[in-house]
Amino acid sequence: MSEKTLEAVNQPKRSSPRVEAYKAFWKRLRKNKAAVVGGFFILLFIVVSIVGPWLTTYDPTEVVVLNKLQPPSAEHWFGTDNFGRDIFTRIIHGMSLTLQVGFLSVGMGGSIGVVLGIVSGYYGGKIDTIIMRVMDVLLAFPGILLALAIVSVLGGSLTNVIIAVSIFSVPAFARIVRGSTLTVRKLEYIDAVRALGASDFRIIFKHILPNVMSPIIVQATLRIATAVLTASGLSFLGLGAQPPAPEWGAMLNDGRTYMTTAPHIILFPGIMIVLVVLAFNIFGDGLRDALDPKMNR
């Protein structure tokens, strides 16, 4: 066996650039302790939303008048509300509703916004002008007011809240993706791929979209926190999930009459909203730093 062959055999195999990029990303993410904590809580919330309802012993909607307004105890960890329902059970069941609103609304709004942003940035011209002016109109309204107007027209329900939050999430994704697309489309390899005869569809979804995923992921994570907060606010106003659904914003609305006599009714749902929003915000900030190597130089 020749020396060159021996060197080739003994030489360690190199990972692909994509694998190396993933390893570098995880290394930077692990260094951000706050992001790790936020990610841990997000995973915990997801697991609890799936497994929790099967482990609770009380019915989240059953009215037990004799048990109403009981303080936290060994029997009822978070106490009971004005209808005698176990608050801990309702919070566990409400977690799946909260995460459902966050993930579905951002998924729907993000998908539409990404497509509009890439098309606007790639083609430019009149298409870009029309799409961006529509986005400007949507951005002219504060998010909560736009969602409030949409739900007021469609009617109060959890489905309509998801639709409303999806609509006001579109402009943020569209603008971010458009800006990234304008940068990527000017690169030489895009011209080379186009010269080889690749279609616009292939260029957009095979070569441009993968290169603009970093800001999309970060924006989606941060947007989930906004979606949860908006959905809770709409439910608090009576325009979101309808009774007796154990949605946290609706629980705050039910308990505001008893703020002085039984503050535990609003304390625990409020704490859970804060924890979920904080976890997604912290994790989103960590993702932004980890996906942008310039932040670590």
Rank of each mutant, 00 (worst) to 15 (best):
S152C: 07
A149N: 09
G156D: 13
I203E: 03
R202Y: 05
T221N: 07
L182S: 05
A174L: 08
A172S: 14
F141A: 07
L222V: 12
S199N: 04
I208V: 15
I167R: 03
G143F: 00
S214E: 10
I163L: 12
S166I: 14
I204Y: 00
L158V: 13
L196T: 15
K206I: 06
I216Q: 07
G156W: 01
P142Q: 02
A195L: 15
L148V: 14
V193R: 05
I167S: 11
L187N: 08
S214T: 08
A225F: 03
L146N: 06
A174D: 08
A164C: 09
F205M: 09
V228L: 06
D191N: 15
I208Y: 04
L209N: 06
L148M: 15
I203D: 05
G143I: 12
Q219E: 15
S166F: 06
A231V: 09
I224V: 15
I216Y: 05
T221Y: 04
F201D: 01
A164D: 13
F201V: 09
S180L: 01
F168V: 12
S166Q: 10
D200T: 08
A231G: 10
V228K: 00
S169M: 14
N160C: 08
S169Q: 14
A220I: 13
F173W: 12
R175H: 02
F168I: 09
G197I: 13
